[in-house]
Simulated scan of single mutants.
Amino acid sequence: MTKNTFLLFVACLLLSGCAFPSPYTQYDIGADYEVLQSSTNGTQILPKMDAFNASQLIPPVVTEVAWNDSYILAKQLELQPDPLNPDAQTPNQQNARYWIIDLKYNKRFGPYTKKQFEAQKKEFRISSSLQLQKVEKLAQK
Results as ranks from 00 to 15, higher is better:
Q37W: 00
D32F: 03
Y105S: 06
Y71C: 05
V135N: 03
D28C: 01
S128V: 07
A19P: 09
V62I: 15
Y71W: 06
T63Y: 02
L132M: 00
W67C: 04
Q37T: 12
Y105E: 13
V10F: 11
K134D: 12
Y71G: 01
Y112G: 13
I45Q: 02
F20R: 09
Q56M: 03
Y98K: 04
Y112Q: 10
I72W: 03
L84H: 13
A11P: 04
P23E: 01
Q140T: 15
F124M: 14
Y105M: 12
L73Q: 04
N68E: 11
D102F: 00
F52S: 15
L77H: 09
Q80W: 01
P111D: 10
R125I: 02
L138M: 01
A119P: 03
T63R: 03
N106T: 09
I29M: 06
Q131C: 00
S70K: 07
E118W: 03
S39W: 01
F117M: 08
V10Q: 11
L138D: 01
K75Y: 01
F52R: 13
A54V: 08
K114P: 04
N68P: 11
K137C: 04
L15D: 10
L103F: 07
L73C: 02
V135M: 06
K121W: 03
S127N: 14
A119D: 12
T63A: 05
R125V: 13
L132D: 01
D82M: 06
Y112E: 07
S38E: 12
L138Y: 02
L15M: 14
K141Y: 03
D87A: 12
P59H: 06
L7Q: 13
D69E: 15
S127M: 06
L13S: 15
A96Q: 09
S70I: 03
Q93E: 07
L103H: 15
L132P: 00
G30Y: 06
L13W: 01
D28A: 10
F6P: 00
N68F: 00
Y71F: 15
E118L: 11
K107A: 08
F117N: 00
G30V: 04
S127Y: 02
K122M: 12
V62Y: 06
F52G: 08
S38A: 08
K48M: 05
I29L: 03
L46D: 10
N41M: 05
